[in-house]
Design a protein around this nucleic acid. Sequence first.
DNA 1: GACAGTACTTTCCTATCAGGAAAGTACTGT
DNA 2: ACAGTACTTTCCTGATAGGAAAGTACTGTC
Lengths: 103, 103
Amino acid sequence: MTRARFDELIHAPTRLSIVALLAAADLAEFKFIRDSVGLTDSALSKQLTTLEDAGYVEIRKSFVGKRPRTSARLTRAGRAAFEQHVAALQEIVAKAGATVLPQ
Amino acid sequence: MTRARFDELIHAPTRLSIVALLAAADLAEFKFIRDSVGLTDSALSKQLTTLEDAGYVEIRKSFVGKRPRTSARLTRAGRAAFEQHVAALQEIVAKAGATVLPQ
DNA sequence: GACAGTACTTTCCTATCAGGAAAGTACTGT
DNA sequence: ACAGTACTTTCCTGATAGGAAAGTACTGTC
């Protein structure tokens, strides 16, 4: 069972979207994330750096043909932090009459 | 079924705690909330005002003997907003492999 | 009657943070 | 040479949170 730990870094709305997206998508491209969460390039770049600095996200630079392509994926720590945060939300919310269950 | 609507006002960590507490407790006293969420008087007072201004919380001033006592409770709108926000969290999180279910 | 105490509320201030715009980097393609 | 792609970094602004302290309005005590 994943223990509950509220994570302010993950909780922030845009980062929650990003992390949940990465948790679902495994590996996601910069533009796909940007469009999914509705940010500008600069804003997403900074959020990804924040997540990378926290050790939650790994940034992969590769080439598609000759064009650079940046992708992101959750690290093991990032996935654990996300799961723990969801568990923390569950604890908060469960008392109020709803449940957050890991599948 | 409650429709999903992400609510930034409710999402902020301390207000999420306050609203979830009120959703569970029905009517809660100032000091109880303050100690539960770990805020100073001033910080809690401001958060309650914010929630009241949003129409999510009703502040009740009463007397216990001669001493003033402030209590808070969710309004119907506040409860609905909380439930919709939980549903929005479910939508975000569900894609990632977990579920938020209303009970 | 002055002063301490209770129960908050409001004001003041600081620190943080988020996001857009614009400029910068590095390379590709015409 | 110049435009374009794909970001990254810098600059700036606006919003917010929270503590400290002062303010308000009573109550209770010496």
